[in-house]
Design a binder for these strands. Structure first.
Lengths: 209, 209
DNA sequence: GGACTGATAGTAATCGATCACTATCTTTTG
DNA sequence: CAAAAGATAGTGATCGATTACTATCAGTCC
């Protein structure tokens, strides 16, 4: 018996394992420095074999982004499901997002790294589209919150949406820098409490969950 | 006439020009993909000549980070100079930081890219130190604001400081993604207004600039 | 004229990608 | 129901391009 000869996986299985390997690697190192050799090694495979399942490296990254987008969005929607209050939904999404990042630290690393680049890759296009969809969703929730009277009528919706997403990005970035993902989970509720006070209509009544 | 024969600059001048070239390049492309050849080409020099002024590439990046740290901190202190109100100082620093980023889009790109990496380079150490100093400064201002009564006494100082920095990082990140640095300048005052309402003691009075 | 700066040319290492070949799995067939 | 045949997955070597870095020679400036 050799030291862990890999069994033959089906093409579909292999692609899925590849995506997981990349996300796992991205959680520890700079995504840009993840080579096809590193990916292959991390999944007990030879480097050349990867190109039997993906036409090129760009396709691997696209697959990873698709995985992240689908998983994240599903998680956010699940967290928001059944909630009536727009403000409560915002908080649920906020915390769900943070929870997702905690479970998959490689995901934001990939996003930031990919979106930061100048060249418009297919992966970047997909990430951008997801971000736009996200922004629109938050904007709708804020408008709904205004209609309900939960949020100030004179609130700058656009700025509030920008701050919502920016706050998450900032929190995640700080956790990445500190190399401690538990930080973001710990700080998220406290930070959101300040954000909430910034947007609600009547500070002092909106006791939470 | 050759295509721009470079005059002989002194070593010090050449180093300075190099740093500026890197920051300029970082404003357009992913910092990790900036090669020594690209740097040299951008400043009308041959690649090999760079290593006459820097021992290796890491030294170039360290010099760039030193430049960024010094310039940013000077700008923030200048903006805060003479201001009495802690809250007003926070806003001044906030806007000054955003202004700096607008003038040098490459700076945050370098910061994010460098801090994201796993390996602890000298440049990363410097960036981390600057961030810590920054956080401490913000924390002091928040505590001072509490003492003055400008900020809520029950405010979570730590979370407020985290949110302050996170907000800037998030704003900048979104501008980087959108590839439009004017965005951050445009949104900054509106976003800070929401943040201010989240931390001040009495919403409805502190309306200013 | 002598020390410094820059150009030219070249190194070893590493990257993504390709290829012929082999191992493994699935299907067909007598 | 096995054994051969066909299809798919993985190996290992290697290619061309690119990387940071260096050695040698020529020009520049005080």
């Amino acid at each position: 018996m050799n030291s862990g000869r890999t069994k033959n996986l089906s093409a579909e299985e292999r692609r899925h394992v590849t995506v997981e390997a990349v996300i796992d690697l991205a959680g520890r190192t700079n995504p840009d420095s993840i080579t096809t050799a590193a990916i292959a090694k991390h999944m007990n495979l030879t480097q050349g074999a990867l190109f039997r399942h993906f036409p090129n490296k760009e396709a691997i990254w696209l697959a990873v982004m698709e995985w992240v987008a689908a998983r994240l969005m599903a998680r956010l929607e699940k967290a928001a499901d059944g909630l009536d209050s727009p403000l409560g939904t915002l908080e649920a999404i906020f915390l769900a997002h943070v929870g997702f990042v905690f479970d998959h630290p490689g995901a934001p690393r990939m996003m930031f790294g990919e979106l930061q680049g100048a060249r418009t890759t297919p992966a970047k296009r997909l990430a951008r589209a997801m971000l736009e969809r996200y922004t629109a969703r938050v904007n709708d929730l804020i408008d709904a919150g205004k209609d309900r009277g939960e949020l100030r009528a004179d609130l700058d919706s656009e700025a509030a949406a920008t701050l919502f997403i920016g706050t998450i990005q900032g929190l995640v970035m700080q956790s990445l820098i500190a190399n401690d993902m538990a930080l973001v989970v710990q700080d998220a509720p406290r930070v959101f409490a300040i954000y909430r006070r910034g947007i609600i209509s009547n500070p002092g009544q909106g006791a939470q969950t």
